[in-house]
Design a protein around this nucleic acid. Structure first.
Lengths: 242, 242
DNA sequence: CGCGGGCTTGACTCACTTCAAGTTGTGTGG
DNA sequence: CCACACAACTTGAAGTGAGTCAAGCCCGCG
């Protein structure tokens, strides 16, 4: 019943009742999607954004020769498609990794947020910009780090994101992505991801089997991959009063 | 006398007089910086944003072992630091590539934009989001493309950005960055950038000497690197009326 | 019980790095 | 106007991290 969008945003600021009403209007409509299903393709008209209610999804692109790069992974409570509001056609494709439930809403719903709720606007802006900072972290990892460092970085990134909504999470989590997906996210092949993960296991950093990952030495991994948590804290002090 | 910020934004929407007044308040203060000078460092308190009046700058990060990645290159008319408004401390460092003139303004100036000018808010949002799409293009290039493709991509990206403000630009432009800088932007070493550029020259794609680049076969380069211009057109149709 | 997707492992290859020794061009001082 | 210094670029030889190819394994599922 509870909206995970509101839950996620409340993590960062206090929302007024008016804000909550406005936000829940974004979650009116629901859509079920299957694991592996394509939600929207590159080049589609991008008139809609989505809020994720449950499940994991990801945005990706295909290169002309067929190689794939996964751009961003999405969890419950995420607002998807902000990256596409600047263009008439979607610049990336969206696919569901698991069975999922998403709530589509039109781009134009944002204009009522912008004109009615400056504080919420600032928050959305901040979230978009946080995504940008995370993308930069990925860019730097992909551009300048070894495979081992990149895998470490990736696992910690997923873990930190899960912690935003699930405070009870310890060192173990479910990762509903296969090693090909992981490789396509950090610019490696699935073969090399496999070799790297087994090496990280042998060095005592992680345990894993199927979709379950256990981080055995988080601080060492963080040091290895120079990881900074971008999700836990954000600066909202400059926000307009209401 | 003319503001290049206003010039750049006018490329996308019609601005009211009120909008112009608000915008020019962001360019009240001026600061001169020298080529190679550090403007703000990673970890500094990030209370200020900047508008670039003249010159080239770039944001970069250093890895623990000293390797560098250049995250984003900035030109006149760009708004810098949007990526940092979500955090109390700067997540990346800013350095000037050439002598430059920049206009600092406080984060809090954004809140007056958000509460007074919904249309301008939408525009700023769109710009932030366009940067995100470009970062994604870089991420995909860095993660999945060969050195040759990456260099081609980089050169076309710079050219397209210059064209936003300079419509007279043909196939030749000034690139005030050395090959180490280029390599640090696309995840290569300076040695390999040199070899790749001379190879691109020999295949008839480009000419270059010192800081001058000539693109001899733009469409072939675009095909080679699967380049899409993200700067020329953006969707502003969903913007609030005023 | 057999099929198939995902994971592992090893042998081989190659794109890119590293190292190192030139070359070029440009600004500076005598 | 020359000489010297210096940064940027070039070029080649040698090394390596990650890719490719391919065979085999594991395990959940029909």
């Amino acid at each position: 019943m509870d909206s995970c969008l509101i839950a996620k945003l409340s993590h960062y600021v206090n929302l007024t009742d008016a804000d909550r009403t406005l936000l829940s209007s974004l979650e009116k409509e629901e859509q079920q999607v299957w694991a592996g299903e394509e939600v929207s393709g590159h080049g589609d008209l991008s008139k809609q954004l989505h809020v994720v209610k449950s499940g994991w999804l990801y945005h990706y692109t295909i290169l002309p020769d067929g190689r794939r790069h996964i751009v961003r992974i999405h969890h419950p409570g995420d607002v998807l498609g902000l990256a596409d509001i600047a263009y008439r056609h979607a610049t990336n494709s969206l696919r569901s990794a698991t069975n999922a439930c998403i709530c589509p809403f039109p781009k134009s719903a944002l204009d009522s947020v912008f004109s009615q709720a400056p504080r919420l606007t600032a928050l959305l802006f901040t979230l978009a910009v946080r995504d940008q900072v995370v993308l930069i972290d990925y860019l730097r990892a992909t551009g300048r780090m070894s495979g081992r460092e990149r895998v470490a970085f990736f696992l910690l990134d997923v873990l930190s994101r899960l912690r935003v909504t699930d405070h009870t999470i310890g060192d173990t989590f479910q990762l509903p992505l296969n090693q090909t997906d992981i490789g396509d996210t950090i610019g490696l092949t699935s073969v090399y991801v496999s070799k790297t993960m087994s090496q990280l296991h042998q060095s005592g950093f992680i345990d894993y089997q199927r979709e379950k990952i256990r981080i055995r030495n988080e601080s060492a991994l963080a040091k290895l991959s120079d990881f900074k948590d971008r999700y836990a804290n954000m600066d909202t002090s400059w926000f307009p009063e209401r």
